[in-house]
């Protein structure tokens, strides 16, 4: 009897040990490349080549200043803030409106309008790069932040609307009915009742959109021409292929600078972000 329970405890311990080893290995694989970049950003190129695994003998922030200044990362961060925040602001205003309308109001062509609004979620923007560039050229918006912002809004709206629809649909209709009895118009109902209720959902969407637009490479890569307009990801690539192509330590610093805002957002809003992103995969 005693022997049996000892064996149970033993196999359980072995199992837990195997599990722990598995988790530690995966954690190391996930963390190591980021940690290596962090350490490298404080080294000199000489140290990097002589001892890739060594610690910096004289850690300074020189690489960061170099990336911000000569690497144009400072300007890029400002550009990215302008583009991301403007896009997110526009999306946060017009997406809840459309989402509320297609969820809670009956109107003609409602089905068609809804389909048009969310179909874009299932279309790869990569497919239409050529006509999109031609459109921006015809509008005189190539190499401008405005062109980039408008494109981001257009292509991010479907997900934002889809995500918020899930919320608006879930509001009990009794709320809407009692408001209607009180004589509220559709607009007053939206402004006084629905919008305040939707604010947490809008925040979730805004955070996810901000991260997505901050990180976006494709549109900036196709639409922007002059380095003074570059957003962070394209500037990062430009920095690593240009004159500082062999300055790996400064590039490491630039990579860290590019990732800091989204990592901070992730630390603060981890739960919201993961919930929203999980929805993105199942968007319907």
């Amino acid at each position: 009897m005693k022997k049996l329970s000892e064996r149970v405890v033993f196999t359980r311990r072995v199992k837990l040990f195997v599990l722990a080893v598995f988790l530690v290995i995966i954690s190391i694989i996930m963390i190591y490349p980021l940690f290596w970049t962090l350490v490298t950003a404080f080294k000199t190129n000489r140290e990097l080549f002589l001892d890739p695994w060594g610690l910096p003998s004289n850690p300074t922030f020189d690489n960061f200043f170099k990336a911000l200044d000569r690497g144009n990362m400072g300007q890029a961060v400002i550009n990215s803030l302008i583009v991301s925040l403007s896009s997110v602001l526009i999306i946060s205003i017009i997406a809840p409106m459309a989402s509320y309308a297609t969820s809670r109001i009956e109107f003609r062509f409602k089905g068609a309008v809804t389909n048009l609004l969310i179909a874009g979620f299932f279309i790869a923007p990569h497919a239409v790069l050529v006509p999109l560039l031609i459109l921006l050229r015809d509008m005189g918006l190539v190499d401008s932040h405005l062109g980039l912002i408008l494109s981001y809004v257009g292509w991010h709206l479907p997900f934002a609307i889809l995500f918020m629809k899930a919320f608006f649909v879930s509001i009990p209709s009794s709320l809407q009915d009692s408001a209607r009895v009180d004589g509220l118009s559709n607009y007053a109902m939206y402004w006084k009742i629905m919008l305040p209720l939707a604010l947490p959902t809008i925040l979730t969407v805004a955070i996810i959109m901000f991260i997505g637009i901050w990180n976006d490479f494709l549109f900036a890569f196709i639409f922007l021409r002059s380095p003074s307009n570059f957003t962070v990801p394209i500037n990062l690539l430009n920095f690593t292929t240009g004159r500082y192509g062999n300055d790996y330590v400064a590039q490491s610093a630039a990579v860290l600078i590019s990732a800091i805002p989204t990592i901070v957002l992730y630390i603060v809003f981890a739960e919201r972000i993961r919930r929203g992103v999980a929805f993105m995969a199942f968007g319907r």
Partner: peptide
């Protein structure tokens, strides 16, 4: 109201996607 509230988003989607 339904159509009017959807209009700004609709305009963006039509111009930049469709």
């Amino acid at each position: 109201a339904g159509l009017i509230l959807s209009l700004p988003a609709l305009a963006f989607v039509i111009i930049f996607i469709f």
